[in-house]
Amino acid sequence: MSIGSNTVMRGAWQDRLAGGLIWALLGVTLVFLLLPLVVAVVMSLDSRPFLGQLPPPSLSLQWYAKVFTSDYIGPSFATSLVVALVAVALNATAGTAAAVAITSGRLPGSRLLAQLFLSPLVVPAVVIGFGLLLVLARLGITSGIGRLMLGHIVITLPYAIRACMASLVGQDRRLTEAAAILGANEWQAFRSVTLPLIRTGIITGAIFTLAISLDDVAVSMFLVDRQNITLPVALVTHMRAAFDLTIAAIAVMAMVFTAFVVLILDVTLGIDRVIGQGLYRSEKENS
């Protein structure tokens, strides 16, 4: 896979230069991608109770122990999980229904909606968070958990709809018509034909929802209250208040968990299929 094969005419030293540059670039990129991970792993094993120079003189599992003993991590993780799962549940149902309605073309303004959901989502998270806080206050929703649930649905629903739509637009409308003329009513046709064919889209949407929701700080910051704090917000707040490397331990645990999920997905569905079909197989196959 060397660039050289394309530039044979230019002579050997140019080839070698180009090849070397490519490798150098790849190396630098890898280092920048991996270095933070390595640092996080090392820091999570640091035995010192203060931020010292790397590498640490000795290793310990104290921060991991703290993950399970400290009083704020358990509840905030539970909050995060509940909020994320509610968002996943709603996105997988209502989001799928919305995607089906939009792509059916029978909805007024569906072309505009389709454009909207398939184009990049550009509003800054801070703006969304602050705006949500104001609107929800107006609506009389003042409980933190309610705000978090609504807020996370707002920020993740577009991704879920988009992933689902991407798998729907490649689908032939005649398949549902074929089901109908063979005797299946609308719901039966959806269950037996549409749903199995857009399953990867729904799963992709759920993964994105989960990832975004569990990761979000910027929007959640505005929506939490004393009783309901999400894990990322709790970690950030704590780290600022007192020196604490629990965050590194959690980051490492999250990495391991993610790697595990990716592995499972790859074994069961094929990861390139999930990513490829779910997100990027958009309008080219629309015709």
Partner: peptide
């Protein structure tokens, strides 16, 4: 509706 008709297509 289509599924109420006995037609093959």
């Amino acid at each position: 509706r289509p599924y109420q008709r006995n037609v093959g297509l």
